[in-house]
Design a protein around this nucleic acid. Structure first.
Lengths: 241, 241
DNA sequence: TAGTGGTCTAGACCACATC
DNA sequence: ATGTGGTCTAGACCACTAA
């Protein structure tokens, strides 16, 4: 392989090329990418070098390997794991499904608090979504979601309600926006008037505030989400290592 | 290599053997393990196979590779990153150090709430530690820590205070107990009388409750910790992928 | 049976750290 | 100059999947 513009290991350069292809939509979420041998031939490197590139992308959850079948583009849509990014677990072990309810969805100028987050310019047009999640008929999560209006033209409460499965699956299939990773800032806050009403708790009750910034390919932030979780019968689960 | 008792890839078997050596203390935290070539000779496999075993252990933070120098046993003691497991960040970016204060340290029978956690039998003798962390003179963290009394014989507030550096570093060097990974359950709770007093907040104020179960080699839980964090000028940081 | 990813090997060379 | 981990290659064989 010709010495690329950057001085980095071959497999890293391959990785960059593969990510570019993903970004360009050469292979869509859920589809298989070419076999390791084909990619090795295309990039004129050995299979082992392609392998190492794919290995890293698999650990980053960009690709999924399936022995005997091939390597596939990761997706939120087919993932049997509903809510890949939701870490809220019920106290009793069963991570059963939740019911959704969309309360609002409108176009607006980005308020200052939202625009501070990278990726959304101040005053830019955004889509705002408010929804709740229920388990066993009781509200558990109140989400406020801000999205840049441009890529999400045509997003309505109607379409959100009709789509079965995780929201990020809809973003993927309908708007071509794939969430790769996210950063969360977690705080304990007191319920205000609206949140206490929507979550059926007393005003001032402690709630878990989860502020999430989600990124697509190329580390571009494309979603800001502020979730309020009731944690009387649920907890936010995290693993440290 | 002889086909071990379990049917698994060679490099996985090597990994098991390496973990056993770590557990047995053949190489202590901070020390270098033998070179890949030496290990390959010892286990009668190729260097690449040892490499893959070490690679996985490095991503699990059991080992640390340093090019040109060798591969070292991970440690909490030398890590320049103070508080490897503490995810609390100040709102202003600087993750500067915190001051510690040990309030209590005594032997007791494990209360029921604690004994429910695996690894501690009900009524077993435990060591209980209470401490606070301060930043800029104001209390931010209140930790209650329960440890099995047996391995931690001789743990006193005195020794905790005298030891500079992270608590898990002291556990390592003084008691031979190495924390490998941990699980946390995070909730929002209201400050009670004692916590509000110790954290200088009004009773009922929302606090982040972080219940941590820490594991040593072999997935044996050896510490239960319940932290209460004030999140008015700090937040719990998490990465999703 | 053919094609995929998964493992294992052996050898070459590079980059870094140390003496 | 030597020893370490890091990269790259080429080829063999295994395990799984599907036609």
């Amino acid at each position: 392989m010709a010495p690329g513009p950057a001085f980095s290991p071959l497999y890293q350069q391959i990785k960059v090329l593969l990510v570019r292809s993903l970004q360009a939509g050469e292979w869509k979420p859920g589809e298989a990418i070419p076999s390791e041998m084909e990619l090795a031939a295309r990039f004129k490197v050995s299979q082992g070098t392609v392998r190492k590139a794919i290995d890293e992308m698999a650990t980053e959850n960009l690709l999924v390997r399936r022995q005997g079948k091939g390597t596939f583009v990761a997706t939120h849509a087919e993932d049997h794991i509903q809510y890949r990014f939701l870490r809220l677990m019920p106290d009793d072990g069963s991570p059963s499904g939740m019911a959704r309810q969309f309360l609002d969805c409108k176009r607006m100028r980005a308020p200052a608090e939202v625009a501070r987050a990278p990726g959304l310019k101040s005053g830019e047009s955004v889509v705002w979504v408010r929804r709740t999640l229920y388990r066993n008929g009781t509200p558990v999560v109140l989400d406020d979601i801000w999205l840049p209006a441009a890529p999400f033209k045509g997003l309505t409460a109607e379409r959100l309600s009709q789509y079965a499965g995780p929201m990020y699956g809809l973003f993927e299939t309908e708007f071509g926006v794939r969430m790769i990773r996210a950063e969360e800032k977690i705080r304990a806050v007191a319920a205000d008037a609206t949140s206490s009403a929507l979550l059926a708790v007393t005003p001032g009750a402690p709630l878990l505030s989860v502020e999430r910034l989600s990124y697509t390919y190329g580390d571009r932030p494309v979603e800001l989400r502020r979730g309020l979780y009731t944690t009387v019968s649920h907890y936010y689960r995290n693993e440290l290592s």
